Simulated assay, not measured.
Amino acid sequence: MTNSLSVNAAKELIDFINNTNYQLAPFCDGAFSSKSEAIAYVEGAEYNSEEPLSICFNTRQGNYWDSAQVTFSDSEWFIEDQAMGGKWSKGESIQKAIEAFRLLHNPTCNYYPDELIFNAHLFQ
């Protein structure tokens, strides 16, 4: 599995997540507060494509966010949660990779990711 997310792929991810109930965060950091902050980060000198962005999602237990790293290689998106037993998925699109990742989890578990919902516009 690849471990990188180019600037162009990161911008595609930012645009996609902007229209959902999920959020984005830099590698091992808190969530971005806006789309413009996320874009500035990936265009900046401190962005390292080998430390990819993370999608952040609420979980079944409510009011508890978890995250997973997103990478892109050879026209496939990968989602990996290294903290939750190494679960990972891939898909031809960001949406398919996220949905496949969610289905890997037990729906009765408190850490079950919320369903991906469009037009939530958490970023402005």
Rank of each mutant, 00 (worst) to 15 (best):
T2V: 14
T2M: 09
N3I: 13
N3F: 07
S6T: 15
V7I: 14
N8L: 09
K11I: 09
L13D: 11
I17A: 00
N18V: 00
N18R: 07
N19E: 08
N19I: 04
N21F: 07
Y22N: 00
Q23E: 04
D29G: 04
G30N: 11
A31W: 08
S33L: 07
S34P: 03
S34V: 13
K35W: 04
K35E: 06
I39R: 13
I39F: 07
Y41N: 09
Y41M: 05
E43W: 04
A45K: 15
E46Y: 08
Y47E: 10
E51W: 10
F57K: 01
R60A: 05
Q61T: 06
Q61C: 09
G62M: 09
Y64N: 11
Y64P: 00
W65L: 10
D66M: 12
Q69G: 06
T71L: 04
F72H: 15
S73E: 14
D74Q: 13
E76S: 04
E76F: 07
W77L: 01
F78T: 15
F78N: 03
E80S: 01
G85P: 08
G85Y: 11
W88K: 14
S89T: 10
G91T: 00
S93M: 05
I94W: 04
K96G: 03
K96R: 12
A97C: 11
E99S: 04
E99F: 00
A100C: 01
F101R: 09
N106W: 01
N106K: 12
Y112R: 13
P113Y: 00
D114Q: 04
L116P: 02
I117E: 13
H121G: 02
L122W: 07
F123H: 02
F123R: 02
Q124W: 04
